[in-house]
Design a protein around this nucleic acid. Structure first.
Lengths: 203, 203
DNA sequence: GTCTATAAGATGATAGAC
DNA sequence: GTCTATCATCTTATAGAC
C-alpha cells in the first residue's frame, strides 16, 4: 500500500521480502509464542533483522498497530492451514479429524510453542486494546466461516453448519491449548476423533 | 503453614481473611483477567490492600512463586464450579450442558473478563517458567479428572470417561475464549448443546 | 508483619543524523 | 528508509526503619 518493495518476485528460489513484511512475520510468531505483553518491540526488530527506527517508520502507531498487522497475518496463515486440512477428504468427518491431526503434528514439531496465533494476545488485551481485540474477533469469525463453508458444501443447512463450525473451532482451540500444556498430541487427537463422531451423528 | 491468621473464623458474617490470602485472591483474579506479563506486582498489592513489602514477605520467590499460588487458587475455584454444575442433573448430558450455561452466565456477568483462570498465564509462560507451567498442568489434569469421575459415575468405562473428559474440557475452554472475544454467550451455549449430544451418542 | 525508599534494568516511544 | 542515542516511565526486587 504505502511500501516500496526492494526486490522483485524472486530470483527463482524464494521471494525477496521487504523489511515491513519481515517485521510483521517476526511479530506474528513472537505474539503466538509469548503473547502481547511479554514481547518487546526491540526483540521483534532484532528477530526481523531490522532496527527500532524501521519498525516505527512502518508502524507509527507503535506496538498496538504492529500487533494488529501481526494478528491479521496469523489470521491468513491459520485460515490457509484450515482450508488445506478441510480439503484433504470428501467426508467432512474425516476432514475435521485430519485437521486435528495436522495441528497436532505441527504443534509437536514446533516444540509445543506455536499454537493458535491469536488466543494469547486476545486474552491479554480483553477490554484494554480495542483495535487488537477487533482483529482477533475478525480472525475467529474468518476461521468459523471457513469451517462453516466446508460443512455447507457437504449438505448441512446453513444454521447447522454455522453451529457445528462454532463448536469444532472452539474444541480445536481448547485442545490445542491443552496439548501445549500437556506437551502431548493426545488431547488434539482425541478431540479430533470426537468431533468426527459429532459430525457423523447427523448422517 | 507459616502464617498467623489475624482474626478467628468470622464474627458471623464473613471470615476475616489474612493478608496472604487477600494477595493470592487478587493475583488470581488479575492473572485471569490480564495474564501474567501484563499484571504488575504493585497492582496486585494495591488491589489486595497490601504493600509491596508484605507481598515479598509472604512470597520471597517473587512474582513466579506468587503466580503459582494464584494458579492453584484458581484451580480449586474452577474445580468447585465444575463439580457444582456436574451435580446439577442425573443425566450426564444435561449436566454438561448446564455446566456450559453456568459458565456463560458467569462470564457475561463479569463483563466478559473472567474466563478460565489459567489459560492466559499458561500460554504466556510456555517453556519460560517451569513452576508456573507445572501448576497449570496440574489444574487442567484436576479438572479433567473431575469430569472423568462424573462420566464414570454414569456408567462410562474408565477409558471412555477419560477421553470424553478431555474433549469436553477442551471444548469448554475454547468456547469460553470464543465467547470472551465475541462478547456473546452463544459460543458457550452452542458448544454445550453439542457436547450433550456427544455424550448421548453412546446411549 | 508492615511500611517507605530506592536500586538496577527493561520498556515504549522519539529525535535527528545520514 | 535506516541507524544510533536518548528520554521518561515502568518493572521486579531489595534494604532497612518501625
Amino acid at each position: 500500500m504505502e511500501t516500496k518493495q526492494q526486490g522483485g518476485r524472486g530470483t527463482g528460489a524464494e521471494a525477496v521480502v521487504g523489511t515491513r513484511e519481515r517485521v510483521v512475520r517476526a511479530a506474528s510468531r513472537l505474539l503466538q509464542q509469548q503473547g502481547y505483553e511479554g514481547t518487546g518491540i526491540k526483540l521483534i526488530a532484532r528477530e526481523a533483522g531490522a532496527t527500532l527506527g524501521s519498525v516505527y517508520h512502518f508502524f507509527p502507531g507503535g506496538k498496538e498497530e504492529l500487533a494488529v498487522a501481526a494478528i491479521q497475518h496469523g489470521d491468513q496463515e491459520f485460515a490457509d492451514m484450515l482450508r488445506t486440512g478441510l480439503d484433504s477428504a470428501d467426508d467432512p468427518a474425516v476432514a475435521v479429524e485430519n485437521c486435528a491431526r495436522h495441528l497436532a503434528t505441527a504443534l509437536r514439531e514446533s516444540g509445543w510453542a506455536e499454537g493458535c496465533p491469536v488466543t494469547s494476545t486476545a486474552l491479554e488485551t480483553l477490554g484494554r486494546a480495542p483495535r487488537i481485540q477487533e482483529a482477533c474477533h475478525e480472525a475467529l469469525r474468518n476461521w468459523q466461516s471457513v469451517l462453516s463453508a466446508r460443512f455447507t458444501r457437504s449438505g448441512f443447512s446453513v444454521q447447522q453448519a454455522n453451529e457445528l463450525a462454532c463448536t469444532v473451532l472452539a474444541a480445536l482451540e481448547g485442545a490445542e491449548v491443552t496439548s501445549q500444556v500437556f506437551r502431548s498430541e493426545e488431547p488434539l487427537l482425541t478431540t479430533g476423533r470426537h468431533m468426527a463422531r459429532l459430525v457423523r451423528s447427523w448422517s
